[in-house]
């Protein structure tokens, strides 16, 4: 039987008195995309650095393809990693980096690299140091995907990408998952995870607090919507509308807190007055925490 490509058991990492990762169990099966959600400083990056072997666990295990990547050099051939804070020798061009890493991983797949460069629209001949943030991120993504790895570990991969590149990147992830790659990617924004992940793990102060499918999570999650109307609206418009748990009306604007599906609330909005604009309001992830735990996120520095 094939082992689970990403498998964490009791994974714990302490830095002095701070427990950055606390007894984490996590499985990402082949072909699955797992979103790894949590506020900054919750332990996402530390967990991923433990997975790729940059850090050694205080206790517990972080197995990738059945191996400890810190010790098993050959298994790294089948792993793609994108660090959250991507830094590359500023003098190397994208193409030089892909060629170098391709060689280290057992041969450069030129066709795959050229395909990725075209799809993400990167100029591969410019030195890394001269690239914009978004283009640097593309270099990082390509080096992680260029060898079609069986496991992808991506730390905030869409940072700095324009919407077009973001969409193409998500397509690339879906293609990888369809080929059987296990994908773990971290994010601190919910919508991005919604669009791509099958399952979600939420980490908070080093501990996994939720593991569920996206649908289950969204059923429980609360959203805030800001609705702007062409004319002032009366109080009571949203009374009794399913899912609406809170309403604040201020002249032309209504701010709703909705649990689960937003359809009924929108239906009520469009049938009562001239609706001009809908804005999501507030930080989705913060709202999610409030709805799941009733308290905002504790901040933790590392």
């Amino acid at each position: 039987m094939q082992q689970t490509p990403i498998r964490l058991r009791g994974l714990t990492k302490r830095f002095g008195s701070l427990t950055a990762v606390d007894n984490v169990d996590l499985d990402v099966p082949a072909g699955a995309i797992m979103g790894f959600l949590g506020p900054n400083g919750a332990g996402k990056t530390t967990t991923m650095r433990l997975l790729i072997g940059a850090l050694r666990p205080t206790s517990g295990t972080a197995q990738v393809l059945g191996a400890d990547l810190a010790a098993d050099v050959t298994s790294r051939r089948r792993v793609g990693y994108l660090p959250g804070d991507l830094r590359v020798d500023p003098k190397l061009t994208g193409m030089q980096l892909f060629a170098w890493y391709g060689k280290l991983r057992g041969g450069l797949d030129t066709r795959r690299v050229v395909d990725l460069i075209e799809r993400l629209d990167l100029d591969p001949d410019r030195p890394f140091g001269t690239l914009s943030k978004g283009n640097r991120q593309k270099v990082g993504i390509i080096q992680a995907l260029q060898h079609d790895p069986d496991v992808l570990i991506l730390d905030e991969p869409t940072t700095g990408l324009d919407p077009l590149a973001q969409r193409e990147f998500l397509t690339l992830l879906r293609e990888a998952a369809a080929r059987g790659t296990a994908v773990l990617f971290s994010s601190h924004v919910l919508p991005e995870v919604e669009r791509i992940a099958d399952t979600v793990a939420i980490i908070r102060a080093g501990q996994i607090v939720t593991r569920s499918t996206i649908d289950e999570l969204l059923d429980r999650a609360r959203r805030r919507l800001e609705l702007r109307f062409a004319e002032p609206i009366a109080a009571g418009v949203f009374d009794g509308v399913p899912g609406v748990v809170d309403v604040q009306i201020d002249d032309h604007t209504a701010t709703l807190t909705v649990e689960g599906a937003v359809g009924p609330a929108l239906h009520a909005a469009t049938s009562h007055a001239l609706l001009v604009r809908i804005n999501p309001a507030g930080d989705d992830l913060e709202d999610l925490f409030v709805s799941l735990y009733g308290t905002p996120t504790p901040t933790q520095e590392r």
């Binding site: 650095r49 790729i52 072997g53 940059a54 990547l69 050099v73 050959t74 298994s75 790294r76 051939r77 792993v79 990693y81 660090p83 804070d85 991507l86 830094r87 590359v88 020798d89 890493y101 280290l104 991983r105 057992g106 080096q143």
Partner: peptide, 14 residues
């Protein structure tokens, strides 16, 4: 310190 070593060490080279 420059941050470039970590990515290199994730390659199949000890």
């Amino acid at each position: 310190a420059g941050g470039t070593l970590e990515l290199l060490t994730t390659n199949p080279i000890s």
